[in-house]
Simulated assay, not measured.
Amino acid sequence: MRGVFIAAGVALAVSILVTPYLIRFFARQGFGQEIREDGPSSHLKKRGTPTMGGVAILLAIWLGYLLSHLITGETITLSAMLVLGLTTALGIVGFLDDFIKLRRARNLGLNGISKIIGQVLIATIFASVALNFANAYGLSPASVNLSFVRDISVLSFGAIGFILWANLIIAAFSNAVNLTDGLDGLAAGTTALVLASYTIIAFWQGRNACVLTNAAGCYQVRDPIDLALLAAAGMGGCIGFLWWNAAPARIFMGDTGSLALGGMVAGLSIVTRTELLLVVTGGVFVVEALSVALQILVFRTTRRRVFRMAPFHHHFELAGWAETTVIIRFWLLAAMCAALGLGLFYSDWLSFSPIS
């Protein structure tokens, strides 16, 4: 438990302290955000705000995780390093996307095919390693079974099917967080809440883990305590960044941060065997992504729009809501989704507990 608090505290401090230096450095380099011309007119004043702030979040996560291990003396685990590697690799893809946008001075970075190739390659490596490196007890970081709050043993993908499933989850949530990152602090605050729920989930799994037996109610998850520590570092990094990213934002996380954080929550869901539960805890991300898909589908078939603008948060802006009102209400929805996810997780455990 001490390591979890250290990871969160160090990541929060690093993110708060490093971000202002990035703001000044990126401002001197002219690394200012380009704004969509077809977006809400109120956003045009944000043009030139420094971006690529996700660098601070990634640095905070790494330092929070590593310093926690240095202080506590705990062993670094494969499961956590896999998720951390996934997070960092997707952050690099996002960084390239942001950098190209800045160099071309327009809101278009990597083309769609290049970004998809990068995500597929990273997700395939993650999934392959997660399946094929078992510990001394034969437990791998990931399972070929579909999972909700734990493995559903009767629904198995097989190795190839699992790799495809992991690709879908990672691509879906990395892009969903990217779509959510359209208002000051919206993605950072929402992700912090999702990662807080995963800190609790992974820690609870660690307190009720089983390796050699399949006793009722226990969790066959590899390295859960270390995953809780990593999730806490991610949460701390998001909260620290939010200090500077809250409206009116002095820096944006860019694709560097949004793709990385989306990959992090997806990776945590895979290694904690809670992939379908992420649809609940990350409900705001799901709605944001679905709003874009629905808008495109309906417009292409009927030439009419379901929403004033997609992603969903822009619909409310164009309806006359103040930006801060949209952000705070979406944070409240994210908190309710995280609480519902935790409730489902805990109710499953209660069904096995002697006190039920």
Results as ranks from 00 to 15, higher is better:
131 L>E: 14
227 L>V: 04
10 V>Y: 01
178 N>T: 10
248 P>H: 10
21 Y>D: 01
172 A>W: 01
163 I>P: 13
271 V>L: 15
305 R>L: 04
264 M>A: 14
128 S>H: 13
117 I>K: 11
88 T>F: 12
229 L>S: 11
290 L>P: 10
180 T>R: 01
165 W>N: 10
190 T>G: 03
329 R>G: 09
17 L>P: 03
42 S>W: 01
187 A>P: 09
204 W>H: 00
223 D>M: 02
41 S>P: 02
154 V>P: 07
321 W>P: 02
216 A>H: 04
293 A>I: 15
158 G>M: 09
171 A>Y: 02
39 G>Y: 01
37 E>W: 00
83 V>M: 03
299 F>L: 13
114 S>R: 14
14 V>C: 08
214 N>T: 11
156 S>H: 10
152 I>C: 10
88 T>Y: 02
84 L>T: 01
64 G>A: 14
116 I>L: 15
284 V>M: 15
244 W>A: 08
249 A>M: 12
242 L>A: 08
349 W>H: 13
118 G>E: 04
350 L>Y: 08
286 V>T: 06
281 T>L: 15
28 R>Q: 08
182 G>C: 07
244 W>T: 11
259 L>H: 07
264 M>G: 07
304 R>Q: 14
84 L>S: 07
21 Y>N: 07
266 A>C: 06
263 G>M: 11
9 G>D: 07
49 T>Y: 13
172 A>H: 02
259 L>M: 14
167 N>C: 14
296 I>Y: 06
18 V>F: 13
293 A>D: 03
28 R>P: 01
142 A>Q: 13
69 H>D: 04
292 V>S: 15
127 A>D: 07
337 C>K: 06
207 R>V: 00
165 W>S: 14
140 S>Q: 14
99 F>E: 12
238 C>Q: 05
55 V>R: 06
328 I>K: 15
192 A>E: 05
303 R>E: 11
243 W>S: 02
47 R>H: 10
111 N>M: 06
12 L>K: 05
81 M>V: 10
264 M>I: 08
10 V>P: 04
292 V>G: 12
4 V>D: 09
72 T>Y: 07
188 A>D: 05
301 T>W: 03
96 L>N: 09
321 W>Y: 14
284 V>C: 13
267 G>S: 10
324 T>S: 15
221 V>N: 07
74 E>A: 12
181 D>K: 07
143 S>W: 12
299 F>N: 05
326 V>A: 12
180 T>P: 08
59 L>P: 05
78 L>M: 11
142 A>N: 13
182 G>L: 10
163 I>W: 12
187 A>I: 06
114 S>G: 05
296 I>V: 15
295 Q>D: 08
34 E>P: 09
102 L>W: 11
346 Y>N: 01
126 F>H: 03
43 H>T: 05
208 N>K: 02
23 I>D: 00
136 A>G: 10
287 V>D: 07
291 S>W: 13
300 R>A: 01
346 Y>P: 03
10 V>S: 05
126 F>M: 02
315 H>T: 06
203 F>K: 00
2 R>S: 11
169 I>K: 01
138 G>M: 14
17 L>N: 00
221 V>Q: 05
179 L>A: 09
50 P>N: 13
17 L>Y: 06
351 S>C: 07
240 G>I: 09
208 N>P: 01
332 L>F: 14
194 V>K: 00
242 L>E: 11
277 L>Y: 08
268 L>W: 03
311 P>L: 00
219 Y>K: 04
233 A>D: 04
256 T>A: 09
335 A>G: 15
314 H>F: 07
143 S>K: 12
